[in-house]
């Protein structure tokens, strides 16, 4: 479980995060949603430690990430896996080497065991046949799946995904969402996904936090979204006619 308590972050005098607090449970997919520029990427960077907040606490199962020593922070990072918007695979390494990388750095496994573990992770994301290819030789969706395999190689307790569906077609997005959701349940991880993909919200939003102009505007589940009266949330999620029709149907079903 990850708890964040009144996180503040400013850049050159402009306050981007204005005291956000929330709790992210394990075993479910926690979504952070919001418009571009709302501060959700900054929040994610603060949670994973790429940025340090000026105020507030980030508790990983009770361990305060902000105030802990550098060495402890480094050890905690080994319990994290992250999937970046751009997949962030190492270009000079093959798919198998990419997945083996965290194992090479931090596991005490033998070479054979490291290969076996990496192949297991690749098999989990259905990419065992691509293990000898390089990132430049595979599609964007496959790169994201390799990133997932790399992120779970060390059996992390915490999984972070920064816009995992960005640049993918809707069908591949669903594959990635399902994969993240099933892995979260399977390994009982605390998963936080930063997205503005509405399919993800409707599909895997076990818990959704809506960020608006640097503060938490709304929080609930994917079912609560349909019955929410929060105007800003409705304007954001049901921005298109199609989605408004979907909402009407869903609300009808709930009431019926």
């Amino acid at each position: 479980m990850i708890q964040i308590e009144s996180i503040h972050k400013s850049f050159e005098g402009k306050e981007v995060l204005k005291g956000i607090s929330s709790t992210f449970e394990n075993g479910i997919t926690n979504l952070i949603i919001g418009q571009s520029g709302s501060g959700k990427t900054v929040l994610m960077k603060c949670i994973v430690g790429l940025l340090l907040p000026e105020e507030g606490h980030i508790l990983y199962d009770g361990r305060d990430f902000v105030s802990m020593k550098k060495k402890e922070r480094k050890l905690l990072r080994r319990e994290m896996g992250m999937i970046f918007q751009s997949a962030a695979l190492f270009d000079s390494m093959s798919v198998l080497e990419n997945v083996m990388f965290p194992l090479d750095m931090f596991s005490g496994y033998t070479y054979r065991d490291r290969v076996r573990r990496a192949q297991f992770c690749l098999d989990r994301v259905n990419l065992i046949d691509a293990q000898d290819k390089y990132p430049g030789e595979i599609s964007g969706g496959m790169q994201k799946r390799v990133a997932i395999a790399r992120a779970i190689a060390l059996n992390p307790k915490y999984l972070f995904c920064d816009e995992p569906n960005s640049g993918l077609d809707p069908k591949t997005s669903l594959v990635i969402d399902d994969l993240i959701h099933s892995i979260t349940e399977e390994y009982n991880m605390t998963t936080i996904i930063n997205t503005h993909d509405m399919n993800s919200v409707m599909g895997i939003g076990d818990k959704i936090s809506f960020i608006f102009e640097g503060h938490k505007e709304w929080e609930g589940t994917k079912n609560d979204v349909f019955t929410s009266t929060n105007e800003r949330l409705n304007n954001f999620i049901f921005a298109s006619d199609l989605l408004r029709k979907v909402k009407d149907v869903e609300v009808g079903n709930i009431e019926g």
């Binding site: 990072r77 080994r78 994290m80 970046f84 962030a88 990388f101 750095m105």
Partner: peptide
């Protein structure tokens, strides 16, 4: 520079490297 803008350096940092 390319590793930085494609977040490969961030990926290393997140891993604790």
């Amino acid at each position: 520079g390319t590793m930085r803008v494609t977040q490969q350096i961030d990926a290393l940092e997140i891993m604790g490297v």
